[in-house]
Amino acid sequence: MTIQSPHSKDLSQTNHWLLEGMKRYRRDLGAHIFIYAVAIFIILASLSLTIFLITKGVQLFTHDGVSLFTMIFGSVWDLHDGKYGALPLIAGSFAVTVLAALFATPLSIGTALFMGEIANKRGRKWMQPVIEMLVGIPSVVYGFIGLTVIVPFIREHIGGIGFGLLASLIVVGVMIAPTIISITVDGLLGVDQSLREGSYALGATRWQMISRVVIPAASPAILSAILLGMARAFGEALAVQMVIGNTAVFPKSLVYPAATLTTTITSSLGETVEGSTANHSLWALGLILLAMSYVFILVIRWIGRKRNA
């Protein structure tokens, strides 16, 4: 671009300092392209994953002629017998998720209140790595501890054969607690100090201040924390598989075996032949899992939007 003017010189003819900006712009352009490329890659990856799961999952309905209704509401799941009723598995997944959340939530919120409201800065500094360490422990270790400690304990002291929802909810509850704790602590720290002062100035005790002002103010964060924990619980396969007993029946008791969507996929995948109806049915289970995790994400985002409003 050249600008013709009787009063100014043509910049492009010289090595003028005003042209330095163009060089900077060219250097920036490389970084720009890189950042856009990785962002597009991530979007494409999740998009193609979804499409892949859908095309694989729907084959059970399109290719094998199993109806979606019998899949979701059928109550018998037996791959050898050609029964693809996933309701016991769906019920198992929801039972583990809800029970683990019920177990982990009071524990986590109590810990988070200690870290965010009661403990001083030094106390919080000590607690933080402990919580992070709990996140870092691989799920197979949790499952192993569940299998060798919790399952025998339940069998001897509570009843049943030990494998089942009770063992699962304890193992998964402990696994998701750190997630709930750390997001709740962030939410508590985000509550404006002036609200605490305002409550104290009206003659509130510390507990009244926490229960009537801080917790309500942080409630959207606490709710997203619980939902994120539940999303983790819903998707957890390995640790649950080790302690739930893997029997595809309706969970009627806490201390007898059951199964979830994830444990059924992991335990049966090796037994099925690629392209068979049984194999397709496992893909369909995966599709249900994916749909559920999308629901979790949407709900969490919806709560987040309400918080900002």
Binding site: S194, L195, G203, R212, V213, A217
Partner: peptide, 23 residues
């Protein structure tokens, strides 16, 4: 006490007024 920046609780108007009494 009244503070520099208005610090109403993120609750209803009613709940704000009765906070002290309820406590």
């Amino acid at each position: 006490m009244l503070f520099q920046k208005p610090n109403p609780f993120p609750k209803s108007i009613y709940e704000n007024v009765v906070h002290g009494l309820k406590c």
